[in-house]
Design a protein around this nucleic acid. Structure first.
Length: 658
RNA sequence: GCCCGAGUAGCUCAGGGGUAGAGCGCCUCCUUGGUAAGGAGGAGGUCAUGGGUUCAAAUCCCAUCUCGGGCUCCA
């Protein structure tokens, strides 16, 4: 029998007999790695440890073998994918007749490790999860082998047909070549259409946990079967799993809905309508600070401000195309004297109205209209989520009307603007996406093919010129043009879209926008939609989680709490507070009968940046004893000294209180 | 909208076919205390809404609304 020479990645080379398995080859070269290996890469291709080497041997060249180890991303992928199979095996065991959908590993979404979509004979409830998890542990302990087989497509269809797995058959029909890779777990009814690789045995799966149960449509299509999705996660070790669980519990404490209530920032009240936000005084003051900041920036960047109505005749929305392309997301029309009106889901047509109100010369361009424009969208009830997805929200909107020559610079300026704004708030992990038209016909894309291509190129170069890394996403564009989106993660890892820069070659066309050029002829302007926060509500939600409610000075609803130690200091405290308010600071006093410890605790829980403790000593010396919320007691200083510090922090929009 | 779960005091939650419970908060009084909870007393609830079963429903059943986790959709 001939021999194969094997080069272990980063290790020694060995000779193994042809037909030896990958596991045997690794064992011959490195016993330690053999014990740890979950799968392997042979000449760069991921395979099972049980794969035979001659299958992959190249002529003469040594075969490169690299074990896939726990602690690597590939290893985690194998573990999670294998655990998803174990989940399916346990479900089939407990609920015979269950139909299987898909069960991938998830590595990018920090919330979950894997899921499996199933249709069980009865609806599963969350009480079933511990039972399923227990069965998974039993199967894991029995050390069952994952076995891979290659069969013909015909046989595969027959096998899955006999097992009454219609969804799997559908997948095979669509995705399989002539040879189909299938996996079994020995001693279990489980069989799957899958490329692998998997761990060799179920006892390699030591640390997993089922997390939640939810609905999912087959292939994400609401017209197709409603399935149940079981989410879980898995790690190489129990310690990693425990750490993950703990971290998730911590993250949940940052939930903006919880903090919003604790700090009395906002509410959403069922009796007045789901998805409609009430900004309480302490939330409103933060919003005001955010808006003031924006207005300052907008002014500096050559924007002008406008105000427009919240509702308009339906005809306007027909002209803009919203009625046809976006009508499902709009509130139904309301009628007045036989004329139909619709609430605005976007501000653009109104800004166009201002543009169109007079003849424009090329000398007037670009026109940059900015508005905190409140819009209303008919979001499905199940999608609503705190401040992140609501039915009424305010967009820090702007529309730029410019000549084709100007658009490139305008878009570049928008990108710069966005980057600056995110920096001010201290965001570091911003994801940029270039969303372009897709092939699917479900969206009613408006505009000519070459316009789309041209616009995409301009947007891409605006990002490219600034060295901003971005991802190109097909099919995510608005119906009227491609766009750049800015996304940020919330506390528990959900990604939310904030700002956007959108190229629109559709609306200028539909509304017949014009400007008179140097040549004294009418030309069509280019229109750019752009928002930085996106929705002020959503941005606020993200901010709450970003700061865990501990807002920097310039945003904090109460910036300073002045606390008397005894009643004797009450007058002094009021005088101190008054002086600080004169300097423009937001100040609260607490003259109730509590001891100083309780007053401090109170202010601390409210996450007030500075506490000024005032007793006999401070009164005598005209000082305040300063306590900063994260550093604690930082000693006494004169009132003037503190006032200057506080004012400086606010003016600088400092993210830290130093 | 769809699947699963949940709705009890202002908040967080326990309870459960037959006087409605706790902690925090709130109010009153006592206490004037130097850097994360001083003490006592008190007020406060058609147990989400509407039907049904039952001698009796906050509790069991159905529907509706809302919330939570997802799916779809999206800022």
């Amino acid at each position: 029998m001939s021999e194969i020479s094997v080069q272990l990645e980063g290790g020694r080379s060995v000779q193994v007999p042809a037909g030896a398995t990958v596991a045997e080859a690794i064992k011959a070269a490195d016993r330690d790695a053999a014990k740890q290996a979950l799968a392997a890469k042979v000449n760069g291709r991921e395979v099972d440890l049980s794969a035979k080497l001659d299958e992959t041997a190249a002529d003469g060249e040594p075969v490169r073998v690299e074990p896939v180890l726990p602690g690597t991303l590939e290893g985690l992928d194998v573990i999670r994918h294998s655990t998803a199979h174990l989940l399916a095996a346990a479900v089939l065991d407990l609920f015979p007749g269950t139909k299987l959908g898909v069960g991938p590993a998830l590595l990018e979404d920090p919330r979950y490790g894997f899921f499996y979509d199933i249709i069980a004979p009865r609806q599963l409830t969350e009480e079933d999860l511990p039972v399923i998890e227990k069965r998974m542990r039993e199967l894991a302990k029995r050390n069952l082998a994952y076995r891979r087989d290659e069969i013909s497509k015909e046989d595969a269809l027959r096998v899955f047909g006999e097992r009454e797995e219609p969804l799997k058959c559908e997948l095979i029909e669509e995705k399989a070549g002539e040879v189909v890779s299938v996996y079994y777990i020995d001693g279990s009814p489980f069989i799957d259409f899958c490329l692998g690789p998997h761990v060799p045995n179920t006892n390699r799966l030591k640390a997993f946990k089922l997390l939640s149960l939810s609905g999912a449509y087959w292939k994400g299509d609401a017209e197709r079967e409603q399935m149940q999705r079981i989410y879980g996660t898995a790690f190489a070790t129990q310690e990693e799993l425990d750490a993950w669980v703990k971290q998730r519990e911590e993250a949940e404490k940052r939930d903006h809905r919880r903090i919003g209530k604790e700090l009395d920032l906002f509410s959403i009240q069922d009796q007045y309508g789901a998805g409609l936000v009430f900004w309480h005084p302490k939330g409103a003051v933060i919003r005001k600070a955010m808006e003031d900041y924006l207005y300052e920036e907008l002014n500096g960047r050559g924007y002008t401000f406008v105000y427009t109505p919240h509702i308009a005749k339906r005809d306007l929305w027909v002209t803009s195309g919203h009625d046809q392309s976006y009508g499902d997301s709009m509130f139904s029309p309301v009628k007045l004297e036989d004329v139909e009106f619709r609430l605005k889901p976007m501000n653009c047509p109104f800004h166009i109205g201002i543009y169109k109100s007079q003849q424009r010369s090329y000398r007037d361009l670009p026109q940059r209209y900015a508005e905190m424009g409140t819009v209303y969208r008919a979001e499905l009830s199940g999608t609503l989520h705190g401040l992140m997805r609501v039915r009424g929200f305010t967009v820090d909107d702007a529309h730029l009307f410019c000549t084709p020559e100007q658009v490139r610079k305008e878009i570049g300026d928008c990108v710069d603007f966005v980057v600056d704004v995110f920096k001010t708030f201290g965001f570091e992990k911003v994801k940029f996406e270039l969303s372009v038209k897709g092939d699917d016909t479900s969206k009613q894309w408006l505009g000519a093919e070459e316009d789309w291509a041209h616009a995409e190129k301009e947007l891409a170069s605006a990002l490219g010129e600034r060295g901003v890394p971005y991802e190109r996403v097909e099919g995510e564009a608005a119906f009227y043009g491609p766009k750049i989106d800015f996304k940020i993660e919330d506390a528990i890892g959900r990604l939310w879209q904030l700002g956007t820069v959108q190229w629109d070659f559709n609306l200028p066309e539909r509304f017949g926008l014009e400007y008179i050029g140097e040549d004294n002829k009418a030309h069509r302007p280019v229109m750019v939609h752009r928002a930085l926060f996106g929705s002020i509500e959503r941005f606020f939600g993200i901010l709450i989680e970003q700061y865990t409610g501990a807002f920097p000075m310039w945003l904090a609803p109460v910036q300073v709490a002045v606390l008397p130690i005894t009643d004797r200091a009450n007058d002094y405290v009021e005088r101190v507070a008054g002086e600080l308010r004169q300097a423009g600071l937001r100040v609260e006093t607490n003259t109730r009968g509590d001891k100083i410890g309780a007053k401090i605790r109170n202010a601390q829980l409210q996450k007030i940046p500075f506490m000024l403790v005032c007793g006999d000593r401070e009164m005598e010396e005209g000082k305040v004893a300063v306590r900063e919320r994260s550093r604690g007691d930082i000693g006494a200083m004169s009132l003037e000294e503190f006032r200057e510090l506080a004012v400086r922090l606010v003016r600088a929009r400092s993210l830290v209180n130093e």
